[in-house]
Amino acid sequence: MRDETTADTFGMSGGGGIAEGYVMAGDAAALANAFGLVEDPDGNAIIHEVELAEPFTEGRAPVAAVAVDLMGSLATRERSAGRRVIDELLHV
């Protein structure tokens, strides 16, 4: 949510202390090695592996992907924001 446009879309702001991003399938291990990351369920970095490059051609995650990720959050605020945006996208 550090991107102003994304934050506005979801009615949220950054600063949660968690970094989250997307890489192509098979690239997560190389990224983890490059940055010295280790698997930790309580960690503050989340890497999603995706198999379709087309939605990410502009170097950013599609709004729908962010919304789906938020819908899986344990936090009510994030989950609600994701659900709201998905509903808006489906009813445009």
Results as ranks from 00 to 15, higher is better:
30 A>S: 01
4 E>P: 12
9 T>L: 07
32 A>D: 00
83 R>F: 08
41 P>Y: 05
38 V>F: 07
38 V>R: 14
82 G>V: 03
68 V>Y: 03
62 P>T: 11
57 T>P: 04
5 T>H: 11
66 V>Q: 00
35 F>N: 14
64 A>K: 06
79 R>H: 06
83 R>D: 15
34 A>N: 04
9 T>R: 15
86 I>Q: 04
68 V>Q: 04
79 R>Y: 02
83 R>C: 12
92 V>D: 09
62 P>D: 05
13 S>K: 15
66 V>R: 01
20 E>G: 13
56 F>T: 07
60 R>F: 10
47 I>L: 14
58 E>V: 08
34 A>E: 04
74 L>G: 10
80 S>F: 13
60 R>T: 10
37 L>M: 11
48 H>L: 06
44 N>Q: 05
4 E>D: 14
72 G>H: 00
40 D>C: 07
54 E>G: 09
81 A>N: 04
45 A>L: 12
21 G>N: 15
77 R>N: 05
12 M>W: 08
16 G>L: 08
27 D>I: 02
43 G>C: 04
44 N>W: 11
24 M>N: 03
36 G>L: 10
59 G>K: 09
79 R>L: 03
24 M>C: 03
65 A>T: 12
24 M>S: 05
84 R>D: 15
37 L>V: 03
90 L>Y: 10
87 D>F: 06
7 A>K: 08
52 L>Q: 14
45 A>V: 14
77 R>I: 03
68 V>S: 03
82 G>N: 04
44 N>E: 05
26 G>S: 02
1 M>S: 11
66 V>H: 01
55 P>S: 07
29 A>L: 01
6 T>V: 15
87 D>Y: 09
13 S>H: 12
52 L>R: 15
26 G>R: 00
40 D>P: 04
70 L>K: 03
62 P>S: 07
3 D>R: 15
39 E>Y: 04
56 F>V: 08
19 A>R: 14
34 A>V: 01
42 D>F: 13
21 G>P: 08
11 G>Y: 08
39 E>W: 02
56 F>Q: 13
67 A>I: 10
78 E>Y: 03
52 L>E: 13
9 T>E: 14
31 L>Q: 01
47 I>F: 13
34 A>I: 02
86 I>S: 07
24 M>H: 09
17 G>K: 09
1 M>H: 07
27 D>K: 02
32 A>I: 00
15 G>N: 09
83 R>P: 09
19 A>N: 15
20 E>M: 06
52 L>M: 07
69 D>G: 04
8 D>C: 09
49 E>W: 06
8 D>H: 14
33 N>Y: 01
25 A>N: 08
51 E>G: 15
51 E>C: 13
49 E>I: 11
44 N>S: 08
10 F>A: 06
84 R>P: 13
10 F>Q: 05
24 M>K: 09
30 A>T: 00
36 G>P: 10
6 T>D: 13
91 H>F: 05
57 T>G: 05
79 R>N: 03
44 N>Y: 11
69 D>E: 06
65 A>L: 07
71 M>Q: 05
38 V>L: 12
2 R>D: 14
63 V>R: 06
10 F>D: 02
51 E>L: 09
77 R>Y: 01
31 L>F: 03
57 T>M: 14
26 G>I: 01
11 G>F: 14
32 A>T: 01
21 G>C: 15
34 A>F: 04
4 E>Y: 09
